[in-house]
Design a protein around this nucleic acid. Structure first.
Lengths: 295, 295
DNA sequence: GATTGGCATAATGACATGTTATCACATCAT
DNA sequence: ATGATGTGATAACATGTCATTATGCCAATC
């Protein structure tokens, strides 16, 4: 039979204030309620807890022992309250985000930076990988949310469009095509092309979108990641097609040039993916607000 | 607003069994009761504690935190139960006994020995002093019980006769009176006498009892304690009058002799003194039983 | 010896906590 | 598919815990 912790709370107050009536006052209840509670606790524990013959009230040995444990219990209870409040006030907590490579590398860092400045106590986990893997980890639950490229066929997942992203054709600024003002589609398609590997989401999107338009890009080279594609392109090995978000720095430095080819324009939606029924932590809530706020 | 620890208990069971219905079974209550309790706890804490979308049931971050604290709380509760049971079963506890010098030195040791052999986990305190001081310490509460000589005028204390004690006249066995078969009262009263100091209870008893009979003993020497009286007497400095309980060893060794003088026979009651309303611990209860049992 | 403060007791009332009945929804074997 | 099974949610209702007010007793104090 467990100890009735409600009665214990009242008894602890009596022990602390060394008086039934003062304890009652502190608890905002009547004195008889406290009297009865302590008496009932004594009945249940089978031990006399208070020496009512002395004034101020004294604890018996059993009362002493029980009181010490009660203090420990209510200290822990208080700690729990504090911890929950911290969680609510975002002064404690974790947030695990999954992202596909391009988003993780180019779009998320500033957002995570802003989040961290605002909620420095929240522990952030960023998991970058292929959409397939990210989705899998979202379903098996270590991830709170995922931001991925392209279409998601998910069982019970909620997919929301987040931002639109454009894939642009890039050339080294010191290459012939880079120096051309507005090269024709024909000239562009005649040039060598550097691509991401076949498995990647970006590559899939590009292939599908262009196939729909009846265009096939030449494949000269495949690279494992966007960063390599950019380096190869700026080294003059050919043209490339990457997310507009990925080349801000190179454009600024004048290393790369965007070739404006309306026929090759590929736009895609970046998606926010969540498990729909799963409870939403305060940290996730705050992160969602930030995602919607940022333009 | 403190956490409702009753609801917390049900929640902790759910967390442990990762199932509402199994938790309900373990608690011997119905499943809806558990459902409602957890829901109410979530309402009160303002946090979602369980992720009901996964199976088996998963804890949210808040639930995780609350569960850890709950475990700590209920561990402490269990420790309290154990401690109280120990107290009840006399496997833990203290017992503080006050005694006047003669009782403490000669009568109590065998009793305390028996008590300790029977209840080795109980911590014993023996406080030996003048009746006056012992009574004072009983009232101001560090002592659970006192065993004293002679009459006690106590305010609200309960005085119960314990054992009868006889004060006997002793002589060194190699002294002239010691060798005499049955010396006359006159011869005894003519001899030098070694007494306890005037403040002691024993001395008071002797003086009063003999004064009632119209007898006054000569005072040759005063000593601070019974042990010294015995040594002085066996060294031949005169006769003495001490508790029969105090000389068992010397009689056995043949050092001292009891002079049988009917006129000088002084009997007194040794008393058990307790604070009447004060709660009685298990240890004290056991000690009282032992006091009554020993003959 | 009346007053005051503190705890106990009794009669009664409100709310917390339990119950049964039932539904909704998955999973799973047939 | 389909019906059996397991699990949780919800609703209506019963119960018992925990509170209240009213009052009495006792000790301390002026």
């Amino acid at each position: 039979m467990p100890i009735n912790l409600h009665l214990l709370r009242l008894f602890a107050a009596v022990a602390e204030y060394q008086s039934f009536s003062r304890a009652a006052g502190a608890l905002y209840i009547s004195q008889p309620a406290v009297s009865k509670a302590v008496r009932e606790l004594e009945r249940q524990t089978g031990a006399t807890l208070l020496d009512r013959s002395r004034s101020p009230l004294a604890l018996t040995e059993a009362g002493e022992i029980l009181y010490r444990h009660a203090q420990q219990i209510f200290r822990t209870e208080h700690a729990a309250e504090i911890a929950l409040a911290h969680l609510r006030d975002l002064e404690q907590g974790r947030l695990a985000i999954g992202a596909s490579t391009t988003i993780g590398a180019y779009l998320l860092p500033p957002i995570l930076g802003a989040f961290h400045r605002r909620y420095p106590k929240i522990q952030l986990f960023l998991d970058i990988g292929h959409t397939r893997d990210i989705i899998e980890r979202l379903q098996s639950s270590p991830l709170d949310i995922a931001l991925v490229e392209g279409p998601v066929e998910a069982d019970g997942l909620e997919v929301t469009p987040w931002r639109e992203d454009e894939l642009v054709v890039i050339a080294a600024s010191d290459s012939p095509l880079g120096r051309a003002h507005a090269p024709s589609l024909k000239r562009i398609l005649a040039a060598p092309f550097v691509h991401r590997e076949s498995g990647s989401g970006t590559r899939q999107i590009i292939d599908e979108a262009l196939r729909a338009k009846g265009i096939t890009l030449p494949v000269t080279l495949e690279a494992a990641d966007t960063e390599t594609v950019k380096h190869l392109v700026s080294a003059g090995l050919g043209l490339g097609m990457v997310s507009a978000a990925a080349i801000a720095q190179e454009l600024e430095l004048g290393r790369l040039i965007v070739l404006d080819a309306p026929e090759l324009r590929v736009r895609r939606w970046l998606s926010r993916v969540q498990a729909p029924i799963r409870p939403v932590s305060s940290a996730l809530q705050a992160f969602l607000a930030l995602l919607d706020a940022e333009v």
